[in-house]
């Protein structure tokens, strides 16, 4: 694992990705600090982080797109499979390297509130609480990006999927207000989601029966539940969209609440997507 981690880290710094990522992040934070802290003379650094969030849409895919896809593109995945290391070690090693690359600019940014505090009163606790949550949220998106990268050998595709996924996640709360909140609408959306899941499983496993089975069973379960208790579906879709938003959790930290459930939520997302990435790598052994 350490070998993979070191190798991956040197890979990030060999190629331009780590520098581009850091440059973008620092530029976004710099811009935010300029607008909020200096021009508007607001003492809350957490607002800056909240402003920078949207930048994730661009900078996370830059970093994560090559993580696994590149190995597949240049066929080095065969080397990894033949080495005496497990796929979990490969994924965790790669993920930890991503975190280090992410931490590097954050270390620089962590001085900003201290610098500002010399010129006025800054809420350091909230600032650093928000910064920690900012790190966790980025880490969660990186796990998602790693998984997306493990699905393909095409870097463009990996980035092209990650960008809309993060963008959708960013706007899902505002979109939630526009989607149908009726029971039938929610049920229909869930069935569509079950069918899409079926297609995704079919693409991943090339197993028609399994994909069809899961899609059909989930659809029937949703339909059954709807018939039994349609009231429970009232407003379910917008609710789910809000719950799935990683950004929504972050806004609590910006408002000065150190929300432990949010941290646990991020950790769960990380564990879930890393698990999926390992499965995705494992699956390549089977077809």
């Amino acid at each position: 694992m350490i070998a993979v981690w070191k190798h991956e880290l040197s890979g990030h710094f060999h190629s331009l990705t780590a520098y581009i990522f850091s440059a973008f992040l620092l530029a976004f934070v710099g811009l935010g600090a300029m607008l909020y802290n200096i021009q508007s003379a607001v003492a809350n650094f957490e607002y800056v982080l909240s402003f920078v969030c949207l930048g994730f849409v661009v900078i996370i895919p830059i970093l994560t797109m090559r993580v696994v896809a590149e190995e597949r593109r240049q066929k080095t995945d065969q080397l990894l499979y033949s080495l005496p290391i497990t796929t979990s070690q490969i994924i965790i090693g790669k993920y930890l390297a991503l975190l280090i690359v992410y931490l590097a600019p954050l270390v620089i940014i962590s001085f900003y509130p201290l610098i500002f505090s010399r010129f006025g009163e800054v809420y350091l606790l909230t600032s650093y609480g928000a910064m920690f949550a900012f790190f966790m949220m980025g880490a969660a998106f990186m796990a998602v990006g790693t998984f997306i990268s493990s699905l393909t050998d095409n870097l463009g595709f990996a980035a092209g999927i990650a960008i809309p996924v993060i963008l959708f996640n960013y706007y899902s709360v505002s979109l939630a207000e526009y989607v149908s909140s009726t029971a039938i609408g929610s049920a229909a959306a869930l069935i569509v989601a079950a069918v899409i899941l079926g297609f995704v499983i079919r693409h991943l496993t090339r197993n028609d029966r399994l994909a069809f089975g899961i899609g059909a069973v989930l659809s029937i379960v949703v339909a059954g539940l709807y018939v039994m208790d349609s009231a429970a579906f009232e407003g379910l879709l917008p609710d789910i969209m809000k719950k799935l938003s990683l950004f929504e959790r972050f806004s609590k930290f910006v408002n000065g609440v150190f929300d432990l459930t949010g941290i646990i939520y991020y950790l769960t997302v990380i564990a879930f997507f890393l698990f999926l990435s390992v499965q995705s790598l494992e699956k390549r052994r089977y077809n």
């Binding site: 993979v4 190798h7 890979g11 065969q78 080397l79 033949s82 080495l83 005496p84």
Partner: peptide, 27 residues
């Protein structure tokens, strides 16, 4: 076992030394 697949699994933007260091460490 040592294995050389049909297409040598090389990291193109590394030198042989860096590459061998990684593989050796992983082994």
């Amino acid at each position: 076992m040592g294995y050389l697949p049909e297409q040598p699994p090389l990291y193109m933007n590394e030198t042989p030394i860096e590459y061998l260091k990684f593989v050796g460490a992983a082994k």
